[in-house]
Amino acid sequence: MNNKFELSNEYALVRVLSVKHYTNTLFSFETARPNKLRFKPGEFIMIGLIIRGELIFRAYSICSPTWSSTLKFYSTKVPNGLFTTFLHKITTKTSIIIKTKPTGTLVLEALKPGKRLFLLCTGTGIAPFISILFNHETYIRYNEVIVVLTCRYSRELQFFNNEIKQMTKQSYIKPFARNKLRFYLSVTQEPYPYTGRITWLMRSGTIIADLMTYTFNKMDRFMICGSQKMIFDVTNLLKILGYIEGATNNPQDFVYETAYINQFRGNN
């Protein structure tokens, strides 16, 4: 297996450049970027670690802008999860393995033209949307881009808030996002200005009322990323509302990341 791995061009060994811990379980890390790696905003790559003599891979969305010289990722330590328990311990002395061919369903090309883009996510599901928010094409395609992020506790919003602060300093993207980008941050386990899960916020009309905007209509587009249950509930609600699931070969109204549904069934 090792000989095959060493001979394969689809893998790269990359150095960890920085690690930042936000809570006991949430952390981000940045790695070197192979010159040959090209990706679309919203795509993911497979990250590999050698654990107990075995090479194990998991899917991780790329948070970085497409023009960045580094790769940034956002992760949670899953309770009793073999992979994330080891990943949580990485330092700048660590190197990880990546597959250099990105893929994923959360790309703008999978959606029909529209007026508003809702990025619906929970927890670390914000990761692919960071790259999308750093992409000027997102703001060219839509009049409004609305991030709806739900976490359990307010401290779990720190990564997103940090990334948005970084984005506002980028002269490359700031003019495009101005007057178009909006956030709706909700917390479920403690008092916060906005509370409640995404499906309830949408179904009850709370999110529309709080944003002081017009109700959902046929020109709205949606991207969804989060836990398996959240994806199931939100996509079912969107179907009930008459929206159609899209793909790059058949652009429609909404897309979600299918890779993570399969990954949630495994041991993380």
Results as ranks from 00 to 15, higher is better:
residue 110 A to Q: 04
residue 78 V to T: 11
residue 177 A to C: 12
residue 13 L to S: 12
residue 98 I to L: 04
residue 54 E to H: 12
residue 256 Y to L: 06
residue 163 E to P: 02
residue 192 Y to R: 08
residue 230 M to L: 13
residue 266 G to Q: 15
residue 43 E to T: 10
residue 85 T to G: 10
residue 138 T to L: 07
residue 256 Y to T: 01
residue 5 F to K: 15
residue 184 Y to C: 04
residue 122 T to D: 03
residue 185 L to W: 05
residue 194 Y to G: 03
residue 108 L to D: 01
residue 165 K to N: 15
residue 71 L to Q: 01
residue 74 Y to T: 00
residue 148 V to W: 01
residue 256 Y to Q: 04
residue 65 P to H: 08
residue 260 Y to T: 05
residue 89 K to R: 15
residue 227 S to V: 02
residue 227 S to G: 15
residue 258 T to K: 15
residue 178 R to I: 12
residue 129 F to R: 06
residue 162 N to F: 05
residue 127 A to H: 02
residue 164 I to Q: 06
residue 132 I to T: 04
residue 250 N to K: 15
residue 70 T to V: 09
residue 197 R to H: 13
residue 221 R to H: 06
residue 248 T to P: 01
residue 47 I to Y: 01
residue 109 E to M: 10
residue 237 L to V: 05
residue 49 L to Q: 13
residue 153 Y to H: 14
residue 207 I to G: 00
residue 218 K to D: 07
residue 107 V to T: 13
residue 141 R to M: 11
residue 242 G to F: 05
residue 20 K to H: 12
residue 208 I to G: 02
residue 92 T to V: 11
residue 250 N to R: 14
residue 59 A to K: 11
residue 217 N to F: 09
residue 187 V to N: 03
residue 199 T to R: 14
residue 190 E to I: 11
residue 45 I to D: 00
residue 29 F to G: 00
residue 65 P to L: 03
residue 122 T to I: 05
residue 17 L to I: 07
residue 138 T to E: 02
residue 5 F to V: 14
residue 236 N to V: 04
residue 153 Y to A: 08
residue 114 G to V: 09
residue 217 N to I: 08
residue 204 S to T: 13
residue 217 N to S: 14
residue 127 A to L: 06
residue 252 Q to P: 00
residue 261 I to H: 07
residue 260 Y to V: 05
residue 245 E to S: 12
residue 64 S to C: 07
residue 78 V to M: 13
residue 126 I to P: 00
residue 82 L to G: 05
residue 242 G to S: 10
residue 17 L to W: 03
residue 17 L to K: 14
residue 218 K to W: 11
residue 28 S to F: 05
residue 119 L to S: 01
residue 205 G to Y: 06
residue 102 P to G: 04
residue 117 L to A: 05
residue 246 G to M: 03
residue 80 N to F: 11
residue 235 T to M: 08
residue 116 R to P: 00
residue 72 K to I: 01
residue 219 M to F: 15
residue 60 Y to C: 02
residue 198 I to K: 09
residue 230 M to Q: 14
residue 183 F to K: 13
residue 156 E to L: 07
residue 33 R to A: 04
residue 119 L to E: 01
residue 27 F to P: 00
residue 39 F to V: 06
residue 215 T to W: 07
residue 237 L to R: 09
residue 109 E to Y: 09
residue 49 L to E: 03
residue 120 L to G: 01
residue 259 A to M: 10
residue 211 L to E: 01
residue 204 S to L: 09
residue 28 S to N: 10
residue 176 F to G: 08
residue 66 T to E: 05
residue 68 S to P: 00
residue 235 T to I: 07
residue 174 K to P: 00
residue 206 T to G: 01
residue 132 I to F: 05
